[in-house]
């Protein structure tokens, strides 16, 4: 890390705050463009999906346990369980798979 960590933090904080603040405090006009509205509507889904996969496969000690965590989370999310339930049971699934894998060396 040759860059300064505090500058990173400052940049993150300022950008994030401006995104939240500008529309609320200054720009009070409504967005009318259907393209811009649709784009903003789809951004969180595209962004969170891109962050999740394939990154989840390398988030744990092995690709196998990561994949199991992914499938379990996918299933529970599909069943519309709460954020916390999905997260914790996915963790538990990874934990169990990694314990089992120890037996197979």
């Amino acid at each position: 890390m040759q860059n300064n960590i505090y500058i990173y933090i400052l940049v993150m904080a300022v950008v994030t705050y401006l995104i939240r603040m500008l529309p609320l405090a200054i720009w009070r006009k409504e967005i009318t463009s259907p393209f811009v509205k649709s784009f903003l509507f789809y951004v969180p889904y595209a962004c969170l999906a891109a962050m999740t996969f394939p990154a989840i496969l390398s988030a744990t000690m092995s690709v196998i346990s990561g994949a199991v965590g992914f499938v379990v989370a996918l299933y529970l999310a599909y069943k519309e369980r709460s954020l916390l339930t999905v997260a914790l049971i996915a963790c538990a699934a990874v934990f169990v798979v990694e314990r089992v894998m120890v037996f197979f060396g």
């Binding site: 988030a59 346990s65 963790c91 990874v94």
Partner: peptide, 15 residues
Amino acid sequence: SALGVAIYGMFLAII
């Protein structure tokens, strides 16, 4: 290692 998937589980629960 197991807790590493928590954030992704949360993302999936949102999307």
